[in-house]
Design a binder for these strands. Structure first.
Lengths: 131, 131
DNA sequence: CTCGTATTCAACCGAATGGTTGATCAAGGA
DNA sequence: TCCTTGATCAACCATTCGGTTGAATACGAG
């Protein structure tokens, strides 16, 4: 497994990380795990308790979250506590907000254009039009 | 897939919507489409142009985005322009930020605890127990 | 050392995903 | 009208995904 938590991994693209992170959150069990982990670390069996799936299935879910960079694991005797890594979550909101804001800005630009057209109907418009 | 194209589906849970929205963003082609659409609406062929996949594949991607509530479609002659719906994006950032902030708050609480412990260093040390 | 607990590995299964090609439908433009 | 363009439908294929059961590993307590 080539995945590390360090950002010096040149073979891992931003796209790959976003792929894995969004896919990891596209499952209700994994989202509930994230919700649980936001309150603090938990072991595999603790994370499995609210669900009626096997601990093996939960273990797989944790691996998905880990490869998405959303959680890390430590060691405590036989237990492998899982910790939320909020940094990956920030990356996701950053991506979404980028395009949310661009879209918002486009609307404002359109509003401005419409306002200008209605208040200055006589102004000549030297800009090219594609139609 | 039980879902129809109609938005009157009252049996659609928040979980279902988040499932579809996160899953829709877990694909680089669909993310690039969202990025494109943040600049304004586009037809299927326009959206297909940057990629070397068939327009049928792009049409499927658009259906995925539509069922996730991320885009809507209108009609313009033979074309079916696709429009970004930023509201679904807001829902995603809202979900993520909820747990990001809870996690942040937990850290602050821990900081306070550690500070208190260091100022009272002679406190007796009972055996640790989990949960 | 042996036993019990916590976790992972391995193999397997059914369903969903992302892609293809070929056919079909809808709407203009000549 | 006929033809072209834009898009979807349908069937198919390989891969991935989420789940299972059964075996194996790691660690601590007796």
């Amino acid at each position: 497994m080539v995945v590390g938590s360090e950002p010096d991994n040149a073979s891992e693209s931003e796209d790959d990380r976003l792929d894995r992170a969004f896919a990891a959150l596209a499952d209700p069990i994994r989202r509930r795990m994230i919700a649980r982990l936001s309150r603090g670390p938990a072991s595999v069996t603790e994370l499995a308790e609210p669900f009626r799936v096997s601990t093996q299935a939960v273990s797989k879910h944790i691996q998905v979250l880990e490869q998405a960079g959303l959680v890390t694991r430590t060691r405590d005797a036989q237990r492998r506590p899982v910790h939320l890594d909020a940094h990956a979550l920030e990356e996701l909101t950053a991506w979404i907000d980028t395009y949310r804001l661009i879209h918002e800005q486009q609307f404002r630009r359109l509003d401005g254009l419409l306002a200008a057209l209605s208040t200055i109907p006589q102004e000549p418009n030297p800009r090219r039009r594609s139609t």
